[in-house]
């Protein structure tokens, strides 16, 4: 008897299973983010936007695009990754994955990879939709894409952790709804931080989403609320934190095995 050191085919099977799940719910997955994005453009871009004027010499309609993309990427990554691992735990089908020659690391990679793939695709679809409403020139397209993948990966890792930890469907909804959405709205998606009164500017600096959105905007327009290096460091730190928690789960089988 012998077996290879890695079971990439096994991880690939889980990845494909997850992608098939997304495909089955393709229309729901696309409809909600596209519809909300279009609504944002109509309300903030076309109706209110012209009264706001430019921010940092950027047309307001264009200014909100990076933040809107990330808003979708945050919530989709969290939802898809948490749901992806929570469902088999809930239905019991996890027995097969646990009894397969797949390491926990491979399992994480498959679930997180699938969730991240989906949200990157959604992010790009929103970008394409936005092009219908505003003129948009992406300053550093390659870096923008790399950054988008990193953000999707980070939030998918976080979603995986939530899915492992959650013991009910409410818990799955809790973090995206109660934590991420407010932080994102207050995180400079619709405005530049220096438009706020000074006290609120200081408060904003404690909001990690500010750094992440700012970095993404930098790769579009060449400017952001904070230095792009600070953004990258913040994102890297977040990924590092998630990886540390996930590696704890990998080592101990916490909440996966009794």
């Amino acid at each position: 008897m012998s077996a290879p050191m890695l079971n990439l085919r096994g991880a690939w099977s889980i990845y494909r299973f997850e992608m098939a799940r997304f495909k089955r719910t393709l229309w729901q997955s696309l409809a909600t983010p596209i519809l909300t994005t279009v609504l944002y453009f109509i309300v903030f871009g076309s109706a209110i936007g012209p009264r706001i004027g430019d921010i940092d010499a950027i047309n307001y309609g264009a200014f909100i695009v990076p933040g809107l993309i990330l808003l979708t990427v945050f919530t989709q990554s969290l939802n898809n990754a948490s749901f992806g691992i929570y469902m088999p735990k809930f239905s019991g089908t996890i027995y097969e994955i646990l009894s397969a020659p797949v390491s926990t690391a491979e399992l994480v990679l498959a679930y997180v990879g699938a969730a991240a793939t989906k949200s990157v695709l959604l992010g790009l679809i929103i970008l394409a939709t936005a092009q219908l409403f505003v003129d948009l020139n992406v300053g550093h397209p390659v870096w923008m894409l790399v950054y988008l993948v990193m953000v999707a990966f980070a939030f998918s890792l976080a979603g995986f952790i939530i899915g492992i930890w959650a013991e009910g469907f409410e818990a799955l909804q809790f973090i995206p709804m109660l934590v991420v959405t407010p932080l994102t709205f207050l995180g400079g998606v619709f405005y530049s931080i220096d438009m706020l009164p000074e006290t609120w500017q200081t408060v904003s600096l404690f909001n990690p989403i500010v750094y992440i959105v700012s970095g993404f905007r930098y790769f579009f327009f060449g400017s952001g609320d904070v230095s792009v290096w600070v953004s990258l460091a913040a994102l890297g730190g977040f990924i590092g934190l998630c990886l540390a928690i996930v590696s704890y789960i990998v080592r101990t089988g916490h909440k996966l095995k009794s």
């Binding site: 077996a3 290879p4 079971n7 085919r9 096994g10 690939w12 099977s13 889980i14 494909r16 299973f17 098939a20 799940r21 089955r24 239905s91 019991g92 089908t93 027995y95 097969e96 994955i97 397969a100 020659p101 797949v102």
Partner: peptide, 20 residues
Amino acid sequence: YTDMFETVWDTVSFSRGLFG
């Protein structure tokens, strides 16, 4: 413990791939 939406063929093929 079974999936719901997958077909019989897909779920059995999935198992084979899962085991490498």
